[in-house]
């Protein structure tokens, strides 16, 4: 058996692990426990397949992307592996730009080549001068175009340029996909809990549509939070999704609202609303959290402490880029 890694091919001896073979050949691979638990030696298979034992303990989103642990991998055929994720590059042409919220633009891009992505992942949008920012995909792979939601950030160079200058017919470069916050088919009866603030709605919308398109039957609850109800966006799309798919429910949440119509708006902190709504089913639910890192990290911890399994919490904190003037 042979393993190819960063252009070099190494012979794996009988019973030897991929990690040991690579180390023996002098490669510098990070590792620690060598027993399949610390995940320091996580790598990704790009051609061939690895035995099931090499993926034990990894989250299903990572298994779906071909990640495995080199220390637990005794291959039964030739494989090619990599340490870093492989990134695709495509060119996207703006086909539509619509203001969907107070300061949010929905951009639809037609791409020149296929982009192999999962709904919920993100891409890096690269301007011709090299300025790059990450945006989540709100589309699903079957859609004719990629959909991004761009919130105008105060002093944001990229978001300011997109809002002011990027027009229909213009082209931008995209690199990706990145991220492990997406739906993996299986367990169709499980409850899905999706919660996000701001443009955290973008990946959640993709994940919900993807799960429903794949025949998910369990309840799909999407919570979207904002300071005031006027800052929520995409309400029509979500209400429409609710009408078309019985398992789907949209929960609009606003923090500062004197009174909401209990039918359509829930008033309070979105994290508290999520916790109080889903507490009983948490131990068996699958959770997706997207948006502001403070919100995501806090709710992840609270849901875990309330009984959700960490293996079932998929999170995408939107880490801001550098200083405020640099933010997207």
């Amino acid at each position: 058996m042979r393993v190819t890694h960063s252009g070099r091919t190494v012979e794996v001896q009988n019973g030897e692990t991929v990690l040991d073979a690579l180390l023996r050949s002098g490669e510098n691979i990070p590792y620690s426990c060598k027993a399949g638990s610390c995940q320091s030696c996580r790598m990704r298979v790009v051609s061939g397949s690895v035995p099931e034992a090499a993926q034990v303990g990894l989250k299903e989103t990572l298994r779906a992307q071909g990640y495995f642990l080199a220390c637990s991998c005794r291959p039964d055929g030739d494989i090619e592996i990599e340490s870093d994720i492989q990134v695709q590059s495509v060119v996207g042409v703006v086909r539509a730009r619509d203001r969907v919220g107070e300061d949010v633009l929905r951009i639809r891009l037609e791409i020149d080549d296929e982009l192999d992505y999962a709904a919920g992942q993100f891409v890096s949008l690269v301007r011709s001068d090299g300025l790059a920012r990450a945006y989540s995909l709100a589309s699903i792979p079957g859609d004719p175009s990629l959909e991004l939601h761009v919130r105008r950030m105060p002093g944001g160079r990229m978001s300011g340029w997109i809002h002011e200058s990027l027009g229909v017919g213009d082209a931008v470069s995209l690199r990706g996909p990145f991220g492990s916050c997406f739906y993996v088919p299986g367990r169709p009866d499980q409850r899905l809990i999706l919660a996000g603030v701001g443009t955290g709605l973008a990946p959640l919308l993709g994940i919900a549509r993807d799960a429903l398109a794949r025949g998910h039957e369990g309840p799909v609850d999407l919570f979207h939070g904002a300071l005031v109800s006027g800052r929520l966006y995409g309400v029509d799309v979500l209400r429409n999704l609710e009408r078309c798919h019985r398992p789907f429910r949209y929960h609009a949440c606003a923090l500062n609202e004197s009174q909401g119509d209990p039918e359509t708006l829930r008033v309070g902190a979105i994290s508290d609303i999520v916790l109080s709504s889903v507490k009983e089913t948490l131990a068996t639910s699958r959770v997706f959290l997207c948006g502001d890192p403070g919100f995501v990290n806090d709710l992840r911890k609270r849901l875990f402490l309330a009984g959700a399994s960490m293996q079932e919490i998929h999170a995408d904190p939107f880490t801001p880029t550098g200083s405020t003037t640099d933010a997207n």
Partner: peptide, 26 residues
């Protein structure tokens, strides 16, 4: 730790060692 998953992976390696499972404790 913001990286809760990384934190848990380390603890899992420790528990595996304590429970007599496969481990290269250092």
């Amino acid at each position: 730790d913001v990286d809760m998953e990384g934190q848990m992976a380390k603890q899992k390696a420790f528990l595996t060692m304590v429970f007599g499972g496969p481990s290269e404790y250092s």
